[in-house]
Nucleic acid binder design. Structure first.
Length: 348
DNA sequence: AAACAGGTGCTAA
DNA sequence: TTAGCACCTGTT
């Protein structure tokens, strides 16, 4: 039954599969990281020719498109070296691990598409390895973060244990922005369906039968008919507005890496459909600003229950309290709280 | 069948 | 500043 995952049949036969092991230098739990709701394009899969891997997912990651410079208040960044003239690309990968939590993950990709990005196989392997390390935030000391959050806060230490190895990803800026605009008053299956629809209709093939998420230019030029067919509902004009402002340069997504979080937040919120919650999600999941604390209704309820004595808590209050309590680890703390809130049926 | 889903923009105090 | 309300669409 592997065919349903697209790992056999035409796509796989067409290109040779390359596999590499990537060490993240600390615990990773793929299931927790990819199914906690921060990213919308990962699907459970069977890893090709590796029955020893207990879990695997396929999805699309940016390769060579993100550089991570230093911005005020964060650690010095690093940059991926690219052959000059190489455009940012996306590549489908299958990731797996031999136990639920490990520090090493196995990555498979289609050589043909990888060569299209890098030119030579060794370069491709090196770039993809770096891209995976960046996407899964190998630069986060997750063991230390978990210990510190648990120490700061016994209340959520249980969730820290349960979500052991959860990593906040570093998603593509534009895909992340578009995804969270689509998340407004929506549910995860629906969001995933729409993102998938845009990719398969307007994206380019990137291996495993998957397609890249279309760039803003491709979305900005769609007529209202297409947007209606994609079932965005009332979010269609928000998405269009986002695409247009990014294309026009009014909101320069690359530049947001360089400026302080508050300023980046203000710029993102110029876009119709980007309020505090969406902006914070983009900053956390797209720009890896770990000091932000996206507060939705679930988080607000959880904050009320666990910290504010059951009093009524608005998202604004929850956000301020979360950032105050957890400081530079607010993003991770928010994930653990969300984990608890989901598991706690009594939070309605 | 009515309510709800990881909010936001708009309007009115 | 903030409370109240409508909103596409798919599910339960």
């Amino acid at each position: 039954m592997r065919d349903e995952y697209g790992l056999r049949g035409r796509e796989q036969d067409a290109g040779s599969l390359a596999t590499l092991a990537v060490d993240l230098g600390g615990p990773v739990n793929l299931a927790a990281s990819l199914e906690c709701g921060q990213a919308f394009r990962w699907r459970k899969a069977c890893f090709p020719n590796r029955p020893d891997l207990v879990v695997a997912y396929r999805g699309v990651i940016p390769v060579g498109s993100i550089s991570v410079p230093a911005h005020p208040g964060t650690a010095p960044g690093h940059q991926i070296a690219l052959p000059s003239g190489t455009a940012p690309r996306q590549l489908a990968v299958c990731v797996g691990q031999a136990e639920p939590v490990t520090s090493k993950i196995v990555v498979a990709y289609d050589d043909d598409y990888a060569l299209h990005i890098a030119g030579r196989p060794e370069v491709a392997a090196e770039q993809i390895s770096e891209a995976v390390r960046l996407y899964f935030a190998a630069d986060d000391n997750v063991a230390a973060i978990e210990a510190e959050v648990a120490r700061l806060d016994p209340v959520i230490s249980g969730a820290v244990k349960e979500a052991h190895g959860l990593r906040i990803l570093r998603q593509d800026h534009w895909e992340c922005l578009a995804s969270y605009v689509l998340s407004i008053n929506n549910n995860i299956p629906n969001i995933s369906r729409i993102v998938e629809h845009f990719s398969s209709c307007l994206g380019e093939p990137v291996g495993f039968g998957l397609h890249s998420f279309p760039p803003p230019e491709k979305i900005a030029c769609q007529d209202s008919g297409f947007l209606r067919q994609s079932k965005c509902g009332f979010r269609d004009r928000y998405l269009k507005d986002a695409a247009e402002r990014v294309v026009s340069g009014e909101v320069n997504l690359a530049d947001l890496e360089l400026i302080p979080t508050e300023q980046a937040r203000e710029r993102l919120m110029r876009i119709r459909g980007v309020g505090p919650k969406v902006a914070d999600c983009v900053l956390l999941f797209g720009y890896h600003r770990l000091d932000v604390f996206p507060a939705d209704v679930w988080i607000s309820r959880a904050m009320s229950r666990y910290y504010l004595g059951g009093r009524k808590v608005t998202p604004k209050m929850a956000r301020e309290e979360g950032m105050r309590r957890f400081g530079p680890l607010a993003g991770y703390a928010q994930e653990y709280l969300f984990w608890m809130a989901r598991g706690d049926g009594s939070l309605r």
